[in-house]
């Protein structure tokens, strides 16, 4: 099949899937709604109708939040995997999410009255600091670092930062405020947050799409890229900025959710091949498919209780990670 046609079909199917998931997500949940209520909430909103209020003020922002998170996590995952040339890279696995979470804890502990924007900046700073740390560690060795060692250092960093976060939370009695971030979930996403954070994610996505054609070079070694006359460091730095923004934002919105960034790029590559100009858009949409679907499951599996959304994703993510580790081990 023609590659462009194949790409279009995959893109359209995943967009359709996303549309269906969004509609289902708005309609189903702890509070059951008729389709007409959903329709009215969007097009003939009545302020006094509780059902319509739930849809308009809780469910719709929540679903939009899930879409944005999926896009952001999958986008940062695809970047991490290609710039580290490591198939197991993901902002969660490399500890970047935990760095962002630690800075969030710090902001709750010492600046409890900060605005959403303020806490977001803390979260982004945490992500930036951890990314730099991971890259310094991975560039200490001249030769290409083995995927396993990079993942292990990431996990160590992650455990360390999580321990500090927990310690701070216990010490300063923040457990209640933070419990939600540890499990991760989009249940509390509000319109205000979306308005504040949406533009950041948009900036991240624009950089990402701008980088897409250059990302193809990362199939080659640094020596090869340089001998083709291109400077890869500019691409690396832009990509890293993009990862920091996207993962910082997603942590401040929903907490440390791992595995979305790990799984989705692999699925996109499996479906569409090796051209990042096609992999990246597909990854973004599939990421949204996964998070919206996980959120839908999270609140319908055991109503009226919410099952943590991070748990649902880990349930799929962990076996996939083990599969990748095995596959990678066999190649080496």
């Amino acid at each position: 099949m023609n590659q462009r046609l194949k790409f279009s079909i995959h893109l359209i199917v995943s967009l359709l899937l996303l549309a269906i998931l969004i509609i289902l997500s708005i309609r189903f949940g702890a509070n059951k709604n008729e389709s007409s209520t959903v329709f009215n909430a969007i097009f003939h909103f009545q302020k006094n109708n509780v059902d319509q209020q739930i849809i308009r003020n809780i469910r719709i922002p929540r679903v939009i939040g899930a879409v944005l998170i999926g896009v952001a996590l999958a986008g940062s995952g695809v970047l991490m995997q290609s710039i580290t040339k490591n198939p197991m890279a993901d902002s969660g696995i490399l500890g970047i999410n935990s760095g962002a979470a630690l800075m969030l804890t710090v902001s709750f502990a010492f600046f409890p009255h900060l605005s959403t924007q303020g806490t977001t900046i803390f979260s982004i700073l945490g992500a930036a600091f951890t990314s730099i740390l991971v890259f310094v560690i991975s560039s200490l060795k001249k030769s290409q670092m083995s995927p396993t060692i990079l993942v292990l250092s990431g996990m160590a960093i992650s455990a360390f930062f999580t321990a500090i976060s927990e310690g701070l939370a216990l010490l300063l009695h923040l457990k209640q405020d933070l419990a939600f971030w540890h499990f991760g979930g989009v249940s509390a996403v509000s319109w205000v947050q979306l308005k504040n954070l949406g533009p950041w994610i948009a900036i991240g996505i624009v950089i990402l799409l701008f980088l897409a054609p250059s990302m193809n070079l990362l199939h080659l070694s640094d020596d090869s890229i340089k001998s083709l006359g291109r400077n890869i460091n500019v691409i690396r730095i832009l990509a890293l900025i993009c990862v920091v923004i996207l993962s910082g934002i997603s942590v401040s919105l929903v907490g440390a959710v791992a595995f979305v960034g790990l799984i989705i790029p692999h699925i996109a590559k499996f479906l569409i091949g090796t051209d990042y100009r096609q992999i990246i858009p597909l990854t973004l949409i599939l990421g949204a498919d996964l998070t919206v679907c996980a959120d839908l499951i999270a609140r319908t599996i055991n109503p009226p209780n919410e099952t943590p959304f991070g748990l649902i994703i880990s349930l799929v993510g962990v076996p996939f990670f083990i599969y990748l580790a095995r596959k990678d081990g066999n190649n080496a």
């Binding site: 040339k85 199939h219 080659l220 070694s221 020596d223 090869s224 340089k226 001998s227 083709l228 006359g229 291109r230 400077n231 590559k269 090796t274 051209d275």
Partner: peptide, 25 residues
């Protein structure tokens, strides 16, 4: 470096990268 790339091509020691690509790519 963009001009050097038009004067000499370099084939580094065998690497295992790019194995997902097709020959044409």
């Amino acid at each position: 470096i963009s001009d050097i790339a038009k004067e000499m091509a370099v084939l580094p020691q065998t690497n295992n990268l790019a194995n997902d690509l097709t020959v044409q790519e």
